[in-house]
């Protein structure tokens, strides 16, 4: 059985990773959309994204559209793999193989 990923398992980060994993490869999600999906505040979301970026699970891209700043986020290949492994772990628990607390 696979092991839990403590970085991914935190509630907001789990939603971030799920939202990004649902996109086609190379696609990015804008910060504002990610905020709507997770229901997090700007600061909270930014903090979790920093954690995920430092771990190498996501890439944050900042640019400008005209004069308006834009922040977009993309899941990396290791991030996708870590997320899928964690989902497999959660499913294993439900199927009775997990060491429930």
């Amino acid at each position: 059985m696979s092991a839990p990923d403590e970085i991914v398992h935190q509630s907001t980060r789990l939603k971030i990773m799920s939202a990004l994993n649902a996109l086609p490869r190379r696609e990015m999600l804008e910060f504002v959309r990610l905020k709507a999906i997770t229901g997090a505040t700007d600061g909270n979301l930014g903090s979790h994204l920093t954690t995920l970026e430092k771990t190498g699970y996501v890439t944050v891209v900042k640019d400008f559209v005209g004069k308006r700043p834009r922040t977009r986020v993309r899941i990396t290949t290791p991030g996708r793999r870590a997320f899928q492994t964690h989902v497999a772990y959660l499913r294993d628990i439900l199927e009775g193989e997990g060491a429930g607390a």
Binding site: H9, K15, S18, A19, I37, V87, L90, R91, L94, G100
Partner: peptide, 22 residues
């Protein structure tokens, strides 16, 4: 770190919901 069945169920629900919204 250990995850209970309830936690796992809740997490999978959140995952599905975030995926659909995304």
């Amino acid at each position: 770190m250990s995850v209970s069945k309830d936690d796992a169920l809740s997490a999978l629900h959140d995952i599905e919901s975030a995926k659909r919204r995304s």
